[in-house]
Amino acid sequence: MDFISILSIFVLACFVGYYVVWSVTPALHTPLMAVTNAISSVIIVGALIAAAAAGVPAAKWLGLLGVVLASVNIFGGFAVTARMLAMYKKKERPAPKGEGK
């Protein structure tokens, strides 16, 4: 891919991000931060490439360390998001006790 097609993807993705994020309900802004954190760890792709390559040991070790850090984030980020999202509950409509007054 040449630079300009990559740039096109990037610019269009910024616009997608803009509209998608504005549609996130403010009540879920904390899970939003946690999940963006998890997905930004897709940088693990770069760390895997570095770790997988033979030849330069220093680069391999840097890559492996990157894999560890990104994995903390991926597993931690998705797990903590799932934990938070599981807490958001709707009011049970048929109130068990009826109107009090």
Partner: peptide
């Protein structure tokens, strides 16, 4: 880093997360 690796997943994610944080 996605630009360096020519990796669509990284570029799209970076743009999403970047705009998300900026909007917040």
């Amino acid at each position: 880093m996605g630009f360096t690796l020519h990796n669509t997943a990284m570029i799209v994610t970076g743009a999403l997360v970047g705009s998300s944080g900026a909007i917040l």
